[in-house]
């Protein structure tokens, strides 16, 4: 057996089940993400992509299944242990989720200061350095989040996600709401930042241009299960009719949108 085969996946999700009342959102989902790998989960709206991320982050408690980070089961951990695991994570939220009451640089430095990794002065210097990494000047650091455009908020959120040098970064719909050019800029930044950090990345999106750019491997989520996964280069020849319909954005096909008649 090779040495590589003995390395546990960075993230291992097995038989994950999550329901809200009678609605089953995740129905026995299995997914592994290797060390340093960038995996993108695609799927239509409401298929449970965000729920999957929130389960891994510990924001939601699944009914059944296991989630392991570096081989350590994380479901049901005590708060202190969970916070320790979360130190490995960086997260870029769909709406950026910047703290309104803090200036931009304080947002970026938040994890460093609260986590006790740096004092305020040092954290401020790191924050400005991370802002520079995502292409934002020093003048932006002193602004309030409400003064930023959508693209700038996403960049600041990315700077915040990478500020603590995380081992794993999650991206929740990183390009939603952005124009195509800004979306491409964000995609480039995601690729650059994750490569520089050597971080493992798990992204969810329904933007195929984004998925093709940032993924080493793509997995498709449908009805609570991963129905196909493979290298990004094989997405166009997957041989899976669900994947084909999704990546070409066709209304006709096996995926039926649940739309009620008026």
């Amino acid at each position: 057996m090779s040495a590589e085969a003995n390395i546990p996946p960075k993230i291992k999700v097995a038989d994950l089940q999550k329901r809200f009342g009678p609605k089953v959102v995740l129905d026995g989902l299995d997914l592994d993400v290797g060390v340093g790998e960038s995996v993108v989960v695609i799927g239509g709206s409401g298929t449970g992509k965000s729920v999957l991320l929130k389960c891994i982050l510990g924001l939601l408690e699944p009914e059944e299944g296991t989630i392991e980070i570096d081989g350590q089961p994380v479901i049901g951990l005590p708060t202190a242990d969970r916070e320790e695991i979360n130190r490995k994570f960086g997260m870029l939220f769909q709406g950026a989720a910047l703290f309104d009451s803090l200036k931009v640089w304080e947002n970026v430095a938040f994890g460093l200061i609260q986590g006790g990794r740096s004092d305020r002065t040092e954290a401020r210097d790191i924050a400005y350095s991370k802002l520079a990494d995502v292409g934002l000047g020093t003048d932006v650091g002193g602004l309030w989040p409400a003064e930023l455009s959508g693209g700038m908020k996403k960049r600041v959120a990315l700077a915040r996600a990478i500020a603590t040098t995380p081992e794993i970064i999650f991206f929740d719909e990183p390009t939603t709401g952005l124009d195509p050019i800004m979306a491409d800029v964000i995609n480039d930044l995601i690729v650059k930042c994750t490569r520089e950090l050597g971080a493992t990345a798990l992204s969810i999106t329904h933007d195929m241009a984004s998925a093709r750019k940032i993924a080493d491997r793509i997995a498709m989520l449908y009805k609570g299960k991963i129905i196909w996964q493979g290298p990004t280069s094989q997405i166009d020849s997957s041989g899976n009719e669900f994947v084909d319909q999704f990546i070409h954005g066709r209304a006709e096909g096996p995926i039926r949108m649940e739309v009620r008649a008026p």
Binding site: K54, L57, G58, L59, T79, E83, E84, N86, R87, F89, G90, M91, F93, Q94, G95, A97, L98, F99, D100, F110, G111, Q114, G115, R160, T164, F170
Partner: peptide, 16 residues
């Protein structure tokens, strides 16, 4: 903060 995911962001930044 809750509906704009800022509370979730606190958790992901290891802050209770």
């Amino acid at each position: 903060m809750r509906v704009t995911e800022q509370v979730d962001a606190l958790t992901t930044l290891s802050t209770n």
